[in-house]
């Protein structure tokens, strides 16, 4: 059993400014040993900047970050010897074979000889690259590069693995393998994983906790249940309802109900926005009125919904703070149409 309570990655008030733009804003984050943490956010939210600061590759403007108790800025070498980093768009030297690339990384980590060769062989097998190992890296597909990248990260036997957009541009089959591999790293090896992504579904499958990152701010953090509850507290519910017969009388009756804000019709389903959870009342009411409930689903349970909601919230607070002015116009124009949809 891996001790779960030991903090591995700690950031305190981590901030990075580029000129007047704030890339990362007062980030406080604690990752425990063996945890898989997903850093979710749209492009340009400051995820990569955060990762670079954790690796000591970029100096924070304020605050500090530490991994295993070692300061990321002052002692980057000690940090980098226990942290494996898989950058987005990982590249390999094209005129070297996959095996040679791994060997080079091993040498950079001060390994060598028979031990390194054995390790390379076992890692290649683990990521399913044994057959392609002696081809030139320039012939590899994106998925193969990603798998070789994981082998490359594992060469130094890291305690912490940081992945930047690992699932970007991978086909479904490759994705499944990659996710399995990542799950293995976290659950069987007990390594701490920090995965940045804007693809929710993958994150959902692997991560114990997620943090939602918008405009350099961590606006929510916790496991799925916590995030869900957090949203509930806002007092905004969306209920999908499918009932037979679905007629105007139903619509009229629903509108007369208390607590319902608005009703939209989406195909066969009615989308009901309300201030509180009305499932119990609604089902009783419908049953009494002689309707059959075909479908009743409270939205917000999946990460997709949570994600969307948080982005909406962040966008609203943005406009309130007049930050929107600095942004590209396109974004502001897109906003209303998104809300309608």
């Amino acid at each position: 059993m891996v001790q779960k309570n030991e903090a591995v990655i700690v950031t305190e008030h981590l901030t990075k400014r580029y000129g007047s733009k704030i890339a990362v804003n007062d980030l406080n984050l604690t990752l425990r040993k063996g945890e898989a943490f997903g850093l979710l956010g749209p492009n340009g939210a400051g995820k990569t900047t955060t990762i670079l600061m954790l690796l000591g590759l970029t100096e924070p403007s304020a605050g500090r970050a530490s991994i295993n108790g070692k300061d990321c800025t002052k002692d980057p070498l000690a940090v980098k010897s226990v942290v494996g980093y898989l950058p987005d768009n990982v590249g390999f030297y094209g005129d070297m074979t996959g095996r040679q690339n791994l060997r080079f990384t091993g040498r950079l980590n001060g390994r060598g000889g028979e031990e390194l060769e054995k390790r390379i062989d076992s890692l290649l097998e683990r990521v399913g690259m044994t057959e392609a190992a002696d081809q030139k890296a320039s012939t590899y597909s994106k998925g193969m590069r990603q798998r070789l990248g994981i082998a490359d990260v594992l060469i130094k036997d890291p305690e912490v693995i940081i992945m930047d957009e690992p699932t970007l541009g991978i086909d479904p089959e490759g994705m499944r393998e990659l996710l399995n591999l990542m799950r293995e790293l976290s659950q069987e090896d007990g390594r701490t994983l920090l995965i940045s992504s804007h693809q929710l579904h993958q994150i959902q499958q692997i991560c114990d906790r997620v943090g939602i990152f918008v405009e350099g701010k961590l606006i929510a953090c916790g496991n799925l249940k916590e995030l869900e509850d957090h949203i509930r507290k806002d007092g905004h519910f969306e209920l999908e309802l499918g009932a037979a017969p679905c007629d105007d009388r139903l619509l009229g009756m629903l509108q007369s109900q208390q607590g319902i804000e608005s009703i939209e019709k989406q195909g066969d389903l009615l989308l009901i926005h309300s201030r509180k959870d009305i499932r119990a009342e609604l089902s009783r009411f419908l049953g009494e009125s002689g309707y059959t409930i075909l479908h009743l689903h409270q939205r917000g349970g999946d990460l997709d919904e949570i994600y969307r909601r948080y982005f909406e919230k962040a966008g609203q607070s943005d406009e309130r703070n007049q930050f929107g002015k600095e942004k590209k116009k396109g974004f502001r124009f897109r906003k209303p149409s998104k809300a309608k949809a």
Binding site: L77, S81, K156
Partner: peptide, 13 residues
């Protein structure tokens, strides 16, 4: 080529 990222993440100065 995306190799610089990988290189600087290794424990070397």
């Amino acid at each position: 080529g995306g190799t610089l990222n990988r290189l600087v993440a290794q424990p070397i100065y």
